[in-house]
Design a protein around this nucleic acid. Structure first.
Lengths: 188, 188
DNA sequence: GTGATTATTTATCAATTGTTAAAGGATGCC
DNA sequence: GGCATCCTTTAACAATTGATAAATAATCAC
């Protein structure tokens, strides 16, 4: 779990005790491509850290599969709208590429906040960054064309094309798969 | 400032000392319609609480004024992408309706976090809710039509039409003003 | 490998949204 | 009150994106 601790330390220095407590509520998971890590309808009680591979949050709108976000190596993934409200989520988490994940028990984590201010601060900072990323993404969806969003994605995540099927990328960009194909053809 | 303390207490009970500290770094502001509360280009060092009136975060894309969000009574407004990174913001804050605001010194606030865990927790929870709201709004922009987004807005903020010019609402929804007019005409 | 399944592209047509310009309304200033 | 300015609507046309269907390419299971 050294990779997870390294990630934590980019946000916040933790004392030995805090580290031990965090590791005690975490465990390693290995999952194959296409596996459902969290089904739709469950309340989010786990925060995942991606050590290897890719995961995505997805949901269905009118029966159509939509990708809300991707998580690559060294990223946290959680359905925050359920995690912070403890209401059932209409979203699920799926593995896109064979993955090695750390599952962090969120209920136990929140309980640690009282005794370990450093842990509360760590996750405050982690989710503040998630908040900022989401605000920036909102801006991209609010006033950029589909083509602009696609080009921007290639800059932000250069290896996304090699590792993620286009059907997932299309809905992530807020367009249909056919429209994405057309944009790709027109850019060449 | 009782209104602000009431708002805080919906998230987190604060002891007297914490309340005193928070009030010590806050002050009341009165601003008229159209006033610029924060100009574009500044780094965000203040968190505002709207006691009366309306404010908006805005920026320019290709010279066009775009509204990122509104804040009505009993809401917090801050340019989080600057607040949490302390980098200059490409966004500004403007008053839409004569307003009474509480300005909270963010630098002083962050300094209080070390001594007053209750204050850190309070703002953790406030921004967690902001994060959830932003994720939900992202979903709305990602896969709903302009008309769906307009109808949804009327449900969420029933008095927005009476209090906010349509030109601001249009860009908030991610469409042009002309397009919004057309949608309004087609719905009647 | 071979066949079946899944993913991607291409084509056609429809619907939505953007762009530009002009007209009507509303608002504020003197 | 009247003029100027700003806001909103309407119209016509262009560009973008969606929907459907079919063709091609890639992947997977056996």
């Amino acid at each position: 779990m050294q990779q997870l601790l390294n990630y934590f330390h980019t946000f916040q220095i933790l004392n030995q005790d805090s580290q031990t407590q965090l590791l005690a509520i975490s465990h390693l998971l290995h999952l194959k491509k296409n596996a459902i890590l969290q089904p739709i309808g469950h309340t989010c009680k786990t925060i995942y850290f991606v050590q290897k591979g890719i995961a995505r949050i997805f949901y269905y709108k009118d029966g159509i599969d939509i990708t809300e976000c991707f998580a690559f190596e060294n990223q946290i993934i959680a359905r925050v709208e359920s995690l912070f409200t403890q209401r059932p989520s209409q979203k699920g988490i799926q593995i896109i590429e064979n993955a090695e994940l750390v599952a962090i028990n969120a209920t136990a984590l929140f309980a640690l906040y009282d005794q370990y201010p450093g842990i509360e601060r760590l996750f405050r900072k982690i989710f503040e960054q998630g908040y900022v990323d989401t605000v920036n993404r909102l801006e991209s969806l609010q006033f950029h064309s589909a083509e602009e969003r696609y080009v921007h994605l290639l800059k932000e995540m250069p290896d996304v094309l090699q590792r993620v099927p286009l059907k997932y990328i299309a809905s992530y960009l807020g367009i249909t798969q056919v429209s994405l194909s057309r944009i790709r053809a027109s850019i060449k």
